[in-house]
Amino acid sequence: MRKNLSFLGFGMLFGYALSRVRASDYNYIYHMFTGTDLTLALVMASAIIVGAIGMRILAMNQYKGFRGQIIEVNVKKLTKYTAVGGMIFGVGWGMSGACPGTLLAQIGEGKMMGIVTLLGAVLGTYAYALLKNRYENI
């Protein structure tokens, strides 16, 4: 239970930050993609740098976690479908003005269309499970 409450706490911080930086605002996503306001691109770039520095510190600490357990970094494998999935996702991002994290932030803030986007994303995930049944490696 304590572990789940920690996840709840980290989730709250994540949702709060996404919303405070306006990542959940359609206009900011729209203007990032038109190149007229790069606020969110800067958020992403700086987050990557901060994350990389943090991972470097963990590496210097021999990947020892909080209670001395060894941290296992989740390596995401490149497959022949990675690019295809990325393209599909990109179209969805442009259409909805949200990504999986920010659509949750939209709902929390009170943007009702976020609920519709969430429902779509859940159905899309189900469609993946259907595809996976036929094409095992996807």
Binding site: Y81, F89, W93, P100, T117, L119, G120, T125
Partner: peptide, 24 residues
């Protein structure tokens, strides 16, 4: 937005992650 969300959910699974999992 239903359609956009559908592509987000499907694409994220095929790509193996989303903006937080992959990009960050």
């Amino acid at each position: 937005f239903l359609m956009g969300g559908f592509l987000l959910g499907l694409g994220a699974r095929i790509a193996g992650g989303c903006t937080s999992g992959h990009s960050i």
